[in-house]
Design a protein around this nucleic acid. Sequence first.
DNA 1: CGCTGCCTTGATCCCGATCAATTCCCGTGG
DNA 2: CCACGGGAATTGATCGGGATCAAGGCAGCG
Lengths: 233, 233
Amino acid sequence: MLTQTINTQAINTQVRGKIGSALPASDQFVAIADHVGLIATELSYRKEEEIYGEDEPAEYVYQVVSGAVRTYKLLSDGRRQIGAFHLPGDVFGLESGASHRLTAEAIIETNVRVVNRASLEKVAGIDVHVARKLWAMTSGQLRHAEDHMLLLGRKTAMERVATFLLEMDRRLAVAGMMALPMCRRDIGDYLGLTLETVSRALSQLHSQGILGLSGARQIELRNRQRLRNIDAL
Amino acid sequence: MLTQTINTQAINTQVRGKIGSALPASDQFVAIADHVGLIATELSYRKEEEIYGEDEPAEYVYQVVSGAVRTYKLLSDGRRQIGAFHLPGDVFGLESGASHRLTAEAIIETNVRVVNRASLEKVAGIDVHVARKLWAMTSGQLRHAEDHMLLLGRKTAMERVATFLLEMDRRLAVAGMMALPMCRRDIGDYLGLTLETVSRALSQLHSQGILGLSGARQIELRNRQRLRNIDAL
DNA sequence: CGCTGCCTTGATCCCGATCAATTCCCGTGG
DNA sequence: CCACGGGAATTGATCGGGATCAAGGCAGCG
């Protein structure tokens, strides 16, 4: 339960109050919260800590401030499919229905901003721009899921890894370098592969000079065009 | 272009006007159209006919009246991933953004009801219940996509086919029988398998007495519980 | 400096893909 | 009503990409 999390792990980092204009307002989640005067709370989660579980009531909507989050589903025998990685700025845990449909965990030490879902929905019932924004965010997640179904159903291992690298490059590259927050197993569970296959694909791309590795999780893309050629359309 | 479709194939079946209460009002799409007085048009598509293409402007929102529709993405070399099958009552082609992200085709002779997206959005800007409903419909599609990612990324061939049969049973069984509108290739492209693998899995389930076949597309589930046991969680 | 978990690399296996015939319907026309 | 044609489905044989099993290597952190 989130209540426990607040009480046991995150109590020290709680910051209650209206989001002020001093905070980065680079996206609409903040803009909404700011504009309509919603109460936003900031929480911290440690590496590997669960944020919410599958089928739990969706009490809050989250936005990553720093760190990284994975959302996934499990089969009863432990097979895992990660649906998405959530990086700084991303909103996750937004549900139209009553409960979360995936489990969310912090991959590394992570700070998130949360807004109560009920109050957000109340605002959406008054302000059509907020309602439109909630729909657009869910629609954006659907777009990602549709692209990912194509990857999982039809792409080869090498194509999947190329797609992954280009996605991460777009989302978290700083000065041409990526610092991946997740391990090989997470990447495999996102791409529908084993960690060994991910590792082999990365090694091969490295040997071809398409990427540089300075530490397993520090990756530099040296030739994006060749990577795009490997990735099927 | 849809305009062409209207002019060439569907002109005879066009029915312009406010949806009346005499039509089945079992779902909210009709309820919305009825309530707010939107103009709904009914169109027909022949077997294999395209309804809209990937990246085309999303001018209309569709609801299946009769028949069946597949929505899919293609890779440049022709590999195809079907994201969903749309059966009578289902809404498809609803986009929050400007364009369609998958191609839609009629699988068999199909009748659909269409509503202009711009006018629907205009209504959503006034009536919060309509706005809420649009969000909920997109959210429902996201739920399906999340479940399907788990299937495509982590389930075995037999598990995928079991999941498929249970889904179709739920959605189109009449008196314990299913009349599948789609061929084995479509099923394969939905499940991330080849048509041969789908066929083999069905044959095996048949030989185990779990399903009855009267014609390749007429399937009777004889033991849903065993099918649920085969389907991982 | 030495664990300990993460990653890489190698060897082998196996499930589902691919290639290849039939067979089975189902629709069509005689 | 039946014969026929042709796409759809089944079934068989073989292949191969990625999984699995199994060591090492390395690096980040105490």
